[in-house]
Design a protein around this nucleic acid. Sequence first.
DNA 1: TCTTTATGTAATTTATATATTACATTTGGA
DNA 2: TCCAAATGTAATATATAAATTACATAAAGA
Lengths: 66, 66
Amino acid sequence: MTNHIKVERAIKNITQEELARQIGVTRQAINSIELNKYVPSTLLALKISRYFGKTVNEIFSLEDSD
Amino acid sequence: MTNHIKVERAIKNITQEELARQIGVTRQAINSIELNKYVPSTLLALKISRYFGKTVNEIFSLEDSD
DNA sequence: TCTTTATGTAATTTATATATTACATTTGGA
DNA sequence: TCCAAATGTAATATATAAATTACATAAAGA
């Protein structure tokens, strides 16, 4: 699984810290998710989805390895 | 957060066990998710999304309490 | 170059998702 | 009514998400 949160952040021009604040998690959580260090919960994905105004499927996607 | 996996299953007319098998988790995992006992990972949500041919956002949704 | 801001990373701890095994309950059909 | 399938539930174990704290690095501007 991968994601393009980094791109979405770039579009909105906000930092990891600001996104973390808006979503209600730590900056490290956002950083780790961006770098695919772990898979976020669906709750978190939905909050990110809501913040960026895009579906979870538009932001996160399955890979062949999944 | 809530979901209507149960409805999607009813539409496809499959059991929790069959869905679990298709997705690659245990039946208890599906059961617990349907009953909102815990929040699945985004990976699992995407697999469920793919299986039902609907977006994660169509199947899972945030509630006021989230 | 110095400073600041953003990002990457690492260790430890805590909460919780998921597996496993097993049993109870419900439901629908024969 | 009986039986079987489907679903609900529970206990324990394991894996991992996320918090916390802290430090290192990178980048960009003064």
